[in-house]
Computed example of a mutant assay.
Amino acid sequence: MIIEARYHGPPGSGNGGWSAGVFASAYGGSGPVEVTLRRPPPLDTPLTLTEGKVHDPAGEVVAQLRPAEPFDVVAPPVDSATARSASTAYPGLVDHPFPGCFVCGPERADGLRIFPGPLPEGRTAAPWRVPAQVGVPTVWAALDCPGGWTVLGADRPYLLGRIAARVEALPEPGTECVVTGVVITTQGRKALVHTSLYAPEGDLLAHARATWIAVEDDRRSGRTWG
């Protein structure tokens, strides 16, 4: 497995959702998979998966994987018009801790360009134009940042620590889907969030639960982990 440089989140490390999706695809299984990131996924580096652990060439553990217990709670759907309206108020357009993020970075013309804006009750929503090439890692990536932006703030960036996802179906390339997020609980530096991906007709395509970890502002380089 290799996380190519274009799929970065913070500078110098892989986007958490994309990386977790790559690892989960290699892990296999028919049910949801939980991925815990132990350190920032390195870019353009051969990684190996053995007995539920992803290792770098030096033998350091990058991530741990296991089957996830089934979970049915989803981030509530919204219609396309609501998602588009919310996206116009996306905070990352003004101040983004990682503006080059493959998923939600405004500087990435070649990224997924998912810009989740705020809704009431700790929710977010964004439209997503599905790229021509879409696979399981793409969906995991789409389920990543909309959850983080339920808690992200200009003075307190967060990084993905753990995510479990279930992909029911891949979205059709070229369609405009809707991604939603909702914060469930926050405790100290940790936030539990849910995200969901909906087809244009409103059908649920995938959903995830994730734990995000607040990091200090001077760690935006991505060289350290929360």
Score class of each variant (00 low, 15 high):
Leu152Cys: 14
Gly181Lys: 00
His194Leu: 13
Ala199Trp: 06
Thr180Lys: 02
Lys190Gln: 12
Pro157Tyr: 03
Gly188Val: 06
Ser196Leu: 04
Gly147Asp: 06
Lys190Asn: 12
Thr186Val: 14
Val167Phe: 02
Glu172Asp: 12
Ala154Ile: 10
Gly181Ile: 02
Ala164Leu: 07
Leu152Tyr: 15
Pro171Gly: 09
Arg162Trp: 08
Val183Gly: 07
Val178Trp: 02
Glu176Asn: 02
Gly153Asp: 15
Leu159Asp: 01
Leu170Tyr: 10
Lys190Phe: 12
Pro171Arg: 07
Arg166Pro: 06
Ile163Asp: 01
Thr180Trp: 00
Arg162Ala: 05
Gly181Met: 01
Val179Thr: 06
Leu159Met: 12
Trp149Asn: 00
Gln187Thr: 14
Thr185Met: 11
Leu197Val: 06
Gly148Cys: 11
Tyr198Gln: 03
Thr175Asn: 05
Gln187Pro: 11
Gly174Met: 03
Ala191Ile: 00
Thr185Gln: 14
Thr150Asn: 09
Ala169Leu: 09
Ile184Phe: 05
Gln187Trp: 13
Tyr158His: 15
Gly153Ser: 15
Thr185Asn: 14
Leu152Glu: 15
Leu192Gly: 13
Val179Ile: 12
Thr150Ser: 12
Tyr158Met: 13
Thr195His: 08
Leu160Met: 14
Thr180Asp: 01
Val193Ser: 09
Cys177Phe: 00
Thr186Gly: 11
Leu152Ala: 15
Val167Ser: 02
Ala154Asn: 14
Gly188His: 04
Thr180Asn: 00
Arg162Val: 07
Ala191Trp: 02
Ile163Ala: 05
Trp149His: 00
Ala169Phe: 11
Gly148Trp: 03
His194Glu: 11
Tyr158Lys: 10
Gly161Leu: 03
Trp149Ala: 01
Val178Thr: 11
Leu152Pro: 11
Ser196Met: 06
Thr175His: 04
Arg162Gly: 01
Gly188Phe: 05
Glu172Ala: 13
Leu197Pro: 05
Leu192Thr: 15
Val182Ala: 14
Ile184Gly: 08
Trp149Leu: 01
Gly188Lys: 07
Gly153Trp: 09
Glu168Ile: 13
Cys177Ser: 04
Glu176Ser: 04
Ala165Gln: 04
Thr186Ser: 15
Ala191Arg: 00
Arg162Tyr: 08
Thr186Leu: 12
Pro200Arg: 06
Arg156Lys: 07
Ala164Val: 09
Gln187Cys: 13
Pro157Met: 03
Trp149Thr: 00
Thr195Pro: 08
Trp149Lys: 00
Ile184Val: 15
Val167Tyr: 00
Val182Ser: 11
Thr186Tyr: 08
Ala169Asp: 10
Ile163Pro: 01
Tyr198Cys: 06
Lys190His: 13
Arg156Met: 05
Ala191Cys: 02
Val193Pro: 08
